[in-house]
């Protein structure tokens, strides 16, 4: 499969998210240990590592999805454009409109395709009237490369689409609220290879507007879509840098073991 990275330049070096000394506890289990990381704007950042290494947990800290788990406790600072998202004044609901999320398994609501995409704009009050909403829905579906496939059946159920289409619908749903960051938790793990390729291509396109953070268990995928890669192991951030450097010239022996398939 071709390397998508060469087609677009890395546009920016400005930091979108800065995480400092992040610790996560599930009850007594110390899931994330003192992680510092900077996520760049308009860049795809991949989190890789063996299962249970904490990469998904850390991802879920970035839009405070861990708040919905009663036993989870987060310490440290995560700054989104220099504002601490764990500040007491921050409403996680408002945060999540800025930091959208796409999940491992496609989870469209049991509503029509249109209503799925319109859900976010409606609750966040992004539109004044129906035509504006129509516009957002169309734009989002186009952005998610789904418009041509569904434009004739916008009011059919979202659950009737194929797996890859469902996942792209979920991406459209997430970008309809015009977020600044998109978090993707193994977005292709439930898809077949062709659908995976489509979604990967889409992720690369999204980089022009958003900062994308993707968790993946596939190193090939990380190599294909991301510009920066972070390797997690046992709750620690072992190594973080340019994707090419991580895969060709890892500094830490643990990264090398993982890349070469000795641990995982």
């Amino acid at each position: 499969m071709k390397d998508l990275r060469v087609e677009r330049d890395v546009q920016t070096e400005t930091n979108k998210i800065e995480a400092r000394g992040v610790q996560v506890f599930y009850g007594t289990n110390h899931a994330i240990k003192d992680v510092d990381v900077d996520i760049l704007d308009k860049t795809v950042t991949a989190f890789i590592g063996p299962s249970g290494c904490g990469k998904s947990t850390f991802l879920r800290c970035l839009n405070r999805m861990n708040d919905t788990v009663a036993s989870a406790r987060v310490e440290g600072k995560i700054l989104l454009e220099n504002e601490d998202i764990y500040d007491a004044r921050v409403d996680p609901v408002q945060l999540r409109a800025k930091v959208g999320m796409v999940f491992q398994k496609p989870n469209p609501f049991p509503k029509s395709i249109y209503d799925n995409v319109a859900y976010g704009p409606r609750i966040h009050g992004l539109t004044r009237n129906k035509s504006e909403l129509d516009e957002i829905v169309e734009k989002s579906l186009r952005r998610a490369a789904l418009w041509n496939e569904v434009k004739d059946r916008l009011h059919a159920g979202g659950t009737g689409l194929s797996g890859g289409q469902q996942q792209r619908l979920c991406i459209a749903r997430a970008i309809a609220t015009s977020p600044e960051v998109l978090l993707m938790d193994e977005p292709c793990s439930a898809l077949d290879p062709i659908a995976t390729a489509q979604v990967e291509e889409l992720i690369d396109e999204l980089r022009t507007d958003y900062s994308v953070v993707i968790v993946t268990h596939s190193m090939q995928q990380a190599a294909r879509v991301s510009q920066r890669t972070a390797f997690f192991h046992l709750g620690n951030l072992v190594e973080y840098g340019e994707t090419g450097q991580i895969f060709t010239n890892p500094k830490d022996p643990r990264t090398e073991s993982y890349i070469s398939g000795r641990i995982g």
Binding site: A97, V102, G120
Partner: peptide, 8 residues
């Protein structure tokens, strides 16, 4: 999750 994830 889908709903919370986009800020409902």
């Amino acid at each position: 999750d889908g709903s919370y994830g986009i800020g409902a």
